[in-house]
């Protein structure tokens, strides 16, 4: 597997993603500079967390116009796997690769803590090594993670299994108190219609070894590795 991690000015989780892929998963990984227009033959593109362009205007609004994003959109449109984590999720909604928007946390506070995530759909390229309903412990760290979308679009996402992760309590229930930011229906991560683009606010790359507090995040990357051979076969037809 070859992974490309995009570095925007202000990205700060690019090294975490790099380390998770290279040192824990043991796969190839390259940084992709935001001004580049070359995805270096990557099988998976990661848009990492951070504060691209200082979160000026709206989170992710300016990064979306980076030269590399043209290529990322083309890659996604042709079925390539793209994963946006935290600020990367915000870039994906701003660029229209994922529906909805991420607005200010209802608490108005930056929230940095471990949360429980329930896997709502384990039939995606990002969750196939999880079981349905499994609860993962993965940290969040964001100020603008409150997922918003129109009622009709939320209904479509829910009905078509595109809500992949939901914030839940220790018993696996999506309660209001376990919702760290006010997201509609406790939504923490979604995929696009085709299932090849994932956006999630929590940081799986920060939970890849038990010494970090949890190794659950590794499952997301292991799932991509498991999904790739079949996807590549489809591409070669």
């Amino acid at each position: 597997m070859k992974v490309g991690v995009v570095t925007f000015p202000g990205s700060n989780c690019d090294y975490d993603a790099y380390a998770a892929i290279r040192h824990v998963l043991g796969e190839q990984v390259d940084f992709l500079w935001h001004k580049s227009e070359d995805l270096a033959g990557s099988d998976l593109i990661i848009l990492p967390g951070g504060f691209s362009y200082g979160d000026y205007l709206r989170s992710g609004a300016i990064a979306r116009f980076s030269p590399i994003m043209k290529k990322v959109v083309e890659f996604a449109d042709s079925g390539g796997l793209v994963m946006g984590i935290c600020n990367g999720f915000q870039v994906l909604t701003e660029s229209g690769l994922l529906p909805g928007a991420l607005i200010r946390n209802r608490s108005l506070r930056f929230s940095c803590k471990y949360v429980n995530l329930r896997v709502e759909n384990n039939a995606t390229s990002f969750t196939n090594t999880c079981s349905k309903g499994e609860v993962l412990r993965i940290p969040i760290a964001h100020g603008d993670g409150n997922y918003y979308n129109f009622d009709g679009d939320i209904e479509t996402l829910e009905k078509t299994g595109r809500v992949v992760f939901r914030y839940v309590d220790a018993n696996g229930e999506p309660t209001d108190i376990s919702n760290p930011n006010g997201s509609i229906n406790n939504i923490a991560g979604i995929v696009n219609k085709e299932g090849n683009v994932l956006g999630m606010m929590p940081h799986p790359e920060r939970a890849v070894e038990s010494i970090l507090g949890s190794g659950d995040g590794l499952k997301v990357f292991e799932s991509v590795r498991a999904a790739l051979p079949a996807l590549n076969l489809v591409g070669e037809k």
Partner: peptide, 8 residues
């Protein structure tokens, strides 16, 4: 295109 996000 840039100044607003038409979703919100």
């Amino acid at each position: 295109k840039l100044l607003t996000n038409p979703v919100i």
